[in-house]
């Protein structure tokens, strides 16, 4: 469902060119749970951002469901991001001024759907995340794991084609991390395509496939046994 062909990304740092990504080609199938690993600065986030349409490649092509993500206008890209992609970040990136349920509703609020119409769905999602009691809390009143679960609910509310997570547990302890991974693994089992950047091979072990980046290039591509039985 996602196809990357010879994608490259250059940044200009002053006069110096930084190749964050070089010539990466990759195909992600629907239902896959792909982990991206690699040392710091190897271009993992850059790749994820390209997949999610947060950024555009400086060379090469990216397609989602056959439609190009490269060379399209910012607005078109934004709409794809809004409707087809769910993001989960390391630092949760919830809006501190909004309550949990409002944060979850945000992507649909951007669509212009009235809050009252979205709220039941958001509450349901939060309940599924085990946060039924916490819907009206603001992020500062939540623990890290809870915040991340709110973020997952937010990513899921649009029923995205692909869920992207950038070190989703980088800020959480092992136990809390495990709960998050179990959630993701459950979602994947139900058919959700997931792409996750991680430094943690325990996390990668939940997935179906692991790729490793080195210096912006694809170094390894390991297919793991398969979904849990």
């Amino acid at each position: 469902m996602i196809e990357i062909r010879n994608a490259g990304k250059k940044y200009l740092q002053g006069a110096r060119e930084v190749h964050a990504l070089r010539n990466v080609s990759l195909r992600i199938k629907s239902g896959e749970f792909l982990s991206i690993m690699g040392p710091s600065g190897s271009g993992k986030s850059t790749l994820l951002n390209l997949i999610g349409g947060l950024d555009q490649p400086t060379s090469g092509e990216i397609f989602m469901d056959g439609r190009p993500l490269h060379g399209i206008s910012d607005d078109e890209l934004t709409l794809i991001r809004r409707r087809r992609v769910g993001f989960i970040f390391q630092f949760f990136n919830l809006l501190p001024i909004l309550t949990a349920v409002e944060n979850v509703c945000l992507p649909l609020l951007l669509e212009g759907i009235p809050f009252t119409r979205i709220k039941p769905k958001a509450v349901l999602l939060l309940e599924q995340m085990g946060l039924g009691e916490r819907t009206e809390h603001r992020p500062e009143q939540l623990s890290g794991g809870e915040m991340q679960r709110v973020a997952i609910a937010r990513a899921l509310i649009t029923e995205p084609a692909v869920l992207l997570a950038d070190e989703p547990t980088g800020n959480l302890d092992s136990h809390t991390s495990e709960e998050i991974f179990l959630l993701l693994s459950n979602l994947n089992e139900k058919g959700q395509t997931i792409v996750m950047v991680t430094h943690d091979s325990k996390a990668a072990a939940y997935g179906t496939r692991v790729i490793t980046l080195k210096d912006g290039a694809l170094a390894e591509d390991v297919s793991l046994g398969g979904a849990p039985s």
């Binding site: 693994s185 325990k202 990668a204 072990a205 939940y206 390894e220 046994g225 979904a227």
Partner: peptide, 23 residues
């Protein structure tokens, strides 16, 4: 080393799957 890592990863994946089904 890479092969060994892949092997470990696969092993971890099996363990994880067992754990998940146990859960």
């Amino acid at each position: 080393i890479e092969k060994q890592k892949a092997h470990y990863l696969k092993q971890m994946n099996r363990l994880t799957n067992r754990k998940v089904s146990l859960k």
